[in-house]
Write a protein that binds this DNA or RNA. Structure first.
Lengths: 354, 354
DNA sequence: GGCGGACCCGGAACCGGTTCCATCGGCAAC
DNA sequence: GTTGCCGATGGAACCGGTTCCGGGTCCGCC
């Protein structure tokens, strides 16, 4: 493997000049620069990032922490992050975080503690104060997408508003017995995504005068039902079967906390022989790429765009403190939630008259 | 940030001894080792991987090249890889490879060419000879899962056999007009996964005396139909609508090259008002976690296990040439394809008598 | 008792870049 | 004609580890 010394010798200059010519920093005569670049490409020289980061302290590598790879939302965010980083010449090291257990702390205390990533992007994780403190102590910029925890940079949608919007959509259609399939932790972690959406649901139904029913087997008639489940399709299916099993207690509408859950509910309804949207209305959130296939009404967000933006924010935080170009450059839209959009399809309609 | 020199000073030893004590290589008195370890944890010392890899040439980091994040198969493989690497103390750098274009060559010629990964695991990519040559020139071990290309280590299932098995399952049930939804490149790239499965289909139908029909609009009656489409659910849906649109030309069974395609076909059939499996049988391949939900007959493989194994192979290749412990240790099951299993569910049955 | 070897440790070189500092030539301003 | 500054370049220190080499001690064995 050729080193920069080889390039320098071939071009007849010193290592210092070769480094300057190739990196573009400092003053080098145009002619010299060309000679060096020619020499470099001639012997197939490629700089060692390890050596560079050792002295500069910058690795051109950012860490991404994600709880599931195989959920559409997370995959889409990852996709947006990856493309943007690649274009910027950055590497992406992936940490698939177990929800809890010793593996989880190992990620934070060992992997992320090493000087291998310049910044960390955390997707959909409820960070503990200890975890945040550890990152801050090492002065690593952290950008969060969704999730919760007291962190400086966070990209998120208005989850409370999303819960309220989905619920009022169903209310406006005339539904009076509505179930919400919330993510796990909706009640135990009020600040989490699941918790915020559930809060939006509960406040809206309450304002509409619907009583909160204990569970899905509560006596029929108007009311709000809250059920917690994993945000995936199988859990949505199982919860759907449970929820829709008894005609007497059946809600006329379900607000699922994610599109994948909604898909599961739809299949459960079909399995039970219900006709949609006559017997049941379903609304989800995410804007899943399969939503159209299932004719699902949903509240769209743009995870890919969120990923792209998270990278931009992280890179800016890096450039700012390192001494990039101009002013500290405050983030343009700090605090403002990312946009969402209600897309009405065939899965929601007025309830059939009883 | 404390460096190893600080640890050494605190423990009253030299940098060399501190390094030996912490890494476990070389002889260090038990007492000295304890002193060093104590000093290290006292000041929160964490070794810099950059500095270490600079001198050893090993980065404890492996690169993973993947064409899609958001396809179940790839996500599941990635999951298996990630867990295994984490347990081994390795990092994982992710490269989301565009199917073609300048971005693709940039991944190989720039990102992977740098000395940042010890080995590369490539999932479901048809590698060109040039790309393989580039990796070999840099003496980087390459392990492939699926895909094609002349590479030393490859983990794969018997795709040709899978195609044949799925097809004969349908034939044995009595179907005589069968369509295969193949992946793109099935005809242009015979060595690809799509190509092999399609070949298995064609040979089996041919052996059964079914003529190959030009396209789905060919006259009714016995025959084999081959259609190429993207392996995702939306494409399966679209192809399904096309394929099943005309009752006169409709096949009685569809073999989809992936479960996600099969899901799409199932939804298309439902949309067209067909009843399954009375009007249509569908079989997929993968063993998708949602297969049970769709009651889909499929040929299961275990992507997570494949990912785990790929890491093991890669690590062994690294350990062997680097001078690990014992013998060169040939891979236990080199060449042998990974196991698959036919799981029959409700989506396949005898065709209704006409 | 002498000697070989295992064990333990410190000094110093080294990996491959980047950057500080010094030197030098040329040119404009006085 | 100096002075002073700027652009261009080379020498050398440095980042933070690992490892080679050599010296010293202690033990066992002939």
């Amino acid at each position: 493997m050729p080193a920069i010394g080889d390039v320098a010798r071939l071009a007849g200059v010193s290592k210092a000049t070769a480094s300057r010519a190739l990196s573009g920093r400092g003053h080098v005569a145009a002619d010299t620069r060309r000679r060096v670049q020619l020499a470099a490409s001639e012997i197939g020289y490629i700089a060692s990032p390890d050596a560079a980061s050792l002295v500069t302290g910058r690795t051109k590598n950012i860490g991404v922490v994600i709880p599931f790879v195989n959920r559409w939302f997370f995959g889409a965010v990852l996709d947006g992050i990856e493309r943007t980083l690649l274009a910027a010449g950055y590497d992406l090291t992936l940490y698939n975080l177990p929800v809890s257990g010793p593996e989880r702390s190992r990620v934070f205390e060992f992997f992320l503690a090493r000087k291998r990533v310049d910044a960390v992007i955390v997707i959909g994780v409820d960070l503990t104060p200890g975890e945040i403190g550890g990152l801050e102590r090492r002065e690593k910029p952290v950008v969060c997408i969704g999730g919760s925890g007291e962190v400086t940079a966070r990209l998120t949608i208005d989850d409370h508003g999303v819960g309220a919007l989905a619920t009022s959509h169903l209310l406006h259609l005339g539904h009076t017995r509505i179930a919400h399939l919330a993510g796990v932790g909706a009640t135990s972690q009020p600040a989490s995504v699941a918790g915020l959406r559930a809060a939006g649901f509960l406040e809206t139904t309450d304002a509409a005068g619907l009583p909160l029913l204990a569970d899905e087997s509560s006596a029929g008639g108007p009311g709000a039902i809250l059920v917690e489940a994993d945000m995936g399709m199988p859990a949505g299916f199982a919860a759907g079967l449970q929820l829709l099993g008894h005609p007497a207690h059946r809600p006329t509408a379900v607000f699922a906390a994610s599109d994948e859950m909604a898909f599961g509910v739809i299949r459960a309804a079909e399995r039970l022989g219900l006709s949609m949207p006559r017997d049941l209305s379903v609304i989800g959130v995410d804007g899943h790429e399969h939503a159209e296939l299932f004719d699902l009404t949903t509240i769209e967000q743009s995870p890919t765009e969120q990923g792209r933006l998270a990278v931009e924010v992280a890179l800016r935080m890096l450039g700012g403190e390192g001494g990039g170009g101009g002013a500290p450059d405050p983030l343009p839209d700090s605090g403002a939630p990312m946009p969402t959009r209600l897309v009405v399809r065939g899965s929601t309609a007025r309830p059939a008259v009883a």
